[in-house]
Design a protein around this nucleic acid. Structure first.
Lengths: 104, 104
DNA sequence: TGTGCCTATGTCCGATCTGACATATACTGC
DNA sequence: GCAGTATATGTCAGATCGGACATAGGCACA
């Protein structure tokens, strides 16, 4: 993984467990965090494509605007569950979900 | 969704919120639960393909045998996060994850 | 039948995540 | 400038999820 990307991730507040190399991420840690970021981006893209506000999406998933903002920011305190549920609430199919995840 | 499948899901202990029709699942609820089952199946398949025991996988992800069993059973008390992390720990790439999700 | 191994299920309490709220920042149009 | 709207960020009590543990069921092979 490129240093630039790593710094982007670490800047978001991720404290990474057991560094294999100093401040490094293991492959699976990296895959996990990249996955989250892809979901976050997909969420934001889909929401704005629909012309929805964060508040509107929040209501649709019975959450709050602040949590939607955190989701889209890739905040470590939001779960994959919530992000996935939100994408589904935005009308994404499992197949579209897969596309978001597989995307480079 | 076919009634047979619905019963399969409900039998696993899912209590579904706000039934649109009596005992029915909305599209997004169904997609969410199917997603979980796919991950559960993928997890079990991948683990046994590697000849690992649940206990061995548990150690690899610093979890416990009981939780691995629940994961593979699609138990509602395990999060997507844990299932995804476990799949990644089994060496699955994000792309393989996507394949599991997109599978029929 | 017993011993051994793997998996399933239930319960507990400590850790993590959640919605709600407050507040801040940013960008409009007036 | 100010009001209105959208988004970002921090905090907190309550809800959910976590590993650990106990225990049961299943299946093999002596």
């Amino acid at each position: 993984m490129r240093v630039e990307k790593r710094k982007r991730l670490e800047a978001k507040g991720w404290k990474v467990a057991g560094p294999k190399e100093l401040l490094g991420l293991s492959d699976e840690e990296a895959a996990y965090i990249e996955l989250r970021l892809k979901l976050a981006e997909g969420l934001k893209a889909r929401r704005s494509a629909k012309g929805m506000t964060q508040t509107a999406l929040a209501k649709a998933v019975r959450s709050s605007q602040s949590r939607v903002a955190k989701m889209e920011a890739g905040d470590p305190t939001v779960s994959l569950d919530l992000m996935v549920k939100s994408l589904l609430a935005l009308g994404a199919s499992n197949r579209e979900l897969a596309n978001i995840i597989a995307r480079n």
